[in-house]
Write a protein that binds this DNA or RNA. Structure first.
Lengths: 194, 194
DNA sequence: TCTTTTCTGGACTAATTGTTCCGGAACGCG
DNA sequence: CGCGTTCCGGAACAATTAGTCCAGAAAAGA
């Protein structure tokens, strides 16, 4: 009937997400998005609405793909410790991969969050909660399997664990040094599974 | 001889620093800086140069005052453990104080750092190095005093400790919950001084 | 009071921003 | 081959941006 789309909407969204991930919302200008997606101005606005809407779509996409894949690693181990190891391996690998930005879009967004932007805040909080729960589940599994002391307060431990991972995601933006990142990961694993 | 300054330059710089701290470089517009400092456009440009220069001055001021005061806490304890405790107490107190932004300007800057901005990168790296060294010194003191096991690899431990603190500074921007922040701090102290 | 210096408010500019809009081209289908 | 629909390039626009500039006010000392 009508002329079909000349571009892949999902692919374009991923490209836009990468730009926001690397540069942040404010520093990302519409021409950057046009260049990254390859879309024309009209197509971009027609497809995604305005910049704010595209950003919102981008962080949702980020949670779906990037964060999702990272968290899945936790369950891909025969033990909880192995799961956490796989998580860090995957995190470090993507940070070293030059075709994707380092760090975490959710973390970056948190540090520049406009307190009045309720919609974005909501999404970030939701993502954080999912993150927290995934690690809590891992620790509960570890406790049930006797991998960690049964006297450990899991809530306290998971708070600390999440804080470390957030910190690593920040430092990964400047520290491309694989050894340093690996050291942080190893220390963390050792602390949790003492 | 001539008309003296009608404003306090140091005070104006502090005000500008607060804006950058809260909103980030890109989201901070010149009118925001005028409102915060109370200066006129001409005075601002005359005194501090352009926006970039003012930002650079702001992060230097941040390192001098905020980070400086935070790190000094480490030495204000009779033991290393007490020093770390004081550090966290001070950090949490300032995060809860509504008259100053939460989190850390250096951390925020890292997550939105333009990779091509060499000058800013330099300052942030320098600050990070100082931070690292201060905590390394604390741990060395702890080891010498027998507060931590002599078999601990201090370099690994300090990397993890710094990552946690960075993470806490990120989470403090959304989590104003004192209890959660305190929990993270307590867990960290327990891990380091096991 | 007069001079000299410097601050200050606001007008001004030039570039960039996000966003809209339209005419024409491209495509699938009958 | 036309028809209808959709895409797309680029022009156009209004708002906002960072930054400049100048005329006059303000202050301190002679």
């Amino acid at each position: 009937m009508a002329r079909p789309r000349n571009f892949n909407e999902a692919q374009a969204l991923k490209s836009a997400m990468h730009v926001f991930w690397q540069k942040g919302y404010e520093a990302t200008k519409v021409p950057d998005l046009l260049a990254a997606t390859g879309l024309s101005r009209s197509s971009l606005y027609e497809t995604f609405g305005d910049k704010q809407a595209l950003f919102e779509a981008s962080i949702k996409e980020y949670n779906r793909s990037i964060t999702g894949v990272r968290l899945v690693q936790l369950q891909r181990g025969r033990t909880a410790k192995e799961g956490l190891t796989l998580f860090f391996d995957h995190l470090i690998a993507t940070c070293l991969d030059e075709s994707t930005p380092s760090g975490c879009l959710m973390v970056n967004t948190t540090t520049t969050l406009d307190p009045h932007d309720q919609r974005i805040k909501e999404i970030v909080n939701e993502s954080g909660k999912g993150f927290h729960e995934a690690f809590l589940a891992l620790l509960e599994r570890a406790k049930a399997d006797g991998e960690i002391s049964s006297s450990q307060n899991l809530q306290d431990l998971v708070h600390m664990l999440v804080a470390i991972i957030v910190g690593i995601n920040v430092m990964a933006r400047t520290t491309m040094d694989a050894a340093t990142l690996q050291t942080m990961a190893d220390s963390t694993i050792n602390v949790v599974f003492s």
